[in-house]
Design a protein around this nucleic acid. Structure first.
Lengths: 116, 116
DNA sequence: CCGTATCCGCGGAGATACTG
DNA sequence: CAGTATCTCCGCGGATACGG
């Protein structure tokens, strides 16, 4: 099927991959996998160098893409909890594989980088 | 080990992942997996909407990161052949898993997108 | 506590032209 | 054939301040 050829610009699979290719999505997903149900503040603590803006926009995007759940508790003070959806959980094995691969090979890759 | 915690900015694993997170790297790697040894022109044909500039810079980056081999034949006209390194090949199972995941779930994700 | 709003700089990325 | 060089645009992402 032509539309599912990943090398074509209109391919939905490719569009999804490009959506994961931002700076923070994978880190947020990984944090939620490790932490289970997490509040906004928990995520900020888990990823020390993410800004409020980028955390907000990343969460919003992931929610739109059905990768995470957002549950708003109307309390004072407000409490908002995030967690992986089933679709999100199903992505994790692939993500974990990539992390494992990076863990095994970073010495080769970064070693080459330090050469002039 | 603190330095290998993916949530810390200095984590080499994280740095590597961020390097894969550009627009074209994964597509080039996938093309090379399917095509084996490929010339520059082959890659342009395989990925119709990549520009010369981005193909060049992506190939250069991937070579620096030891993910692909570049073999230059000094002929007239010149012939340059690209292929995956062992490190690159070892990444492919994870990448293929992500593609399969996207193929299974794109209907859910993009379906949600079209809602107002 | 959980976010928006606004401003702004930098580099990713395209278009086009040129070279060994 | 296999690339550089140059110019330009655009939006990601950071910093900061403010709102429910």
């Amino acid at each position: 099927m032509r539309e599912l050829d990943i090398n074509f610009p209109t391919c939905p699979v490719r569009n999804i991959l490009s959506r994961m290719s931002d700076k923070w999505s994978l880190l947020v997903l990984r944090a939620l996998q490790k932490g289970g149900v997490m509040r906004y503040k928990d995520l900020r603590n888990a990823i020390p160098d993410i800004s409020q803006k980028m955390l907000s926009s990343t969460l919003k995007r992931l929610e739109e893409d059905c990768l995470i759940n957002r549950e708003m508790h109307k309390e004072i003070p407000p409490r908002v909890e995030y967690s992986l959806t089933e679709t999100g959980k199903e992505l994790m094995p692939a993500l974990v594989m990539m992390i494992e691969w990076a863990r095994e090979h970073f010495d080769v890759i970064t070693g080459q980088q330090s050469m002039p």
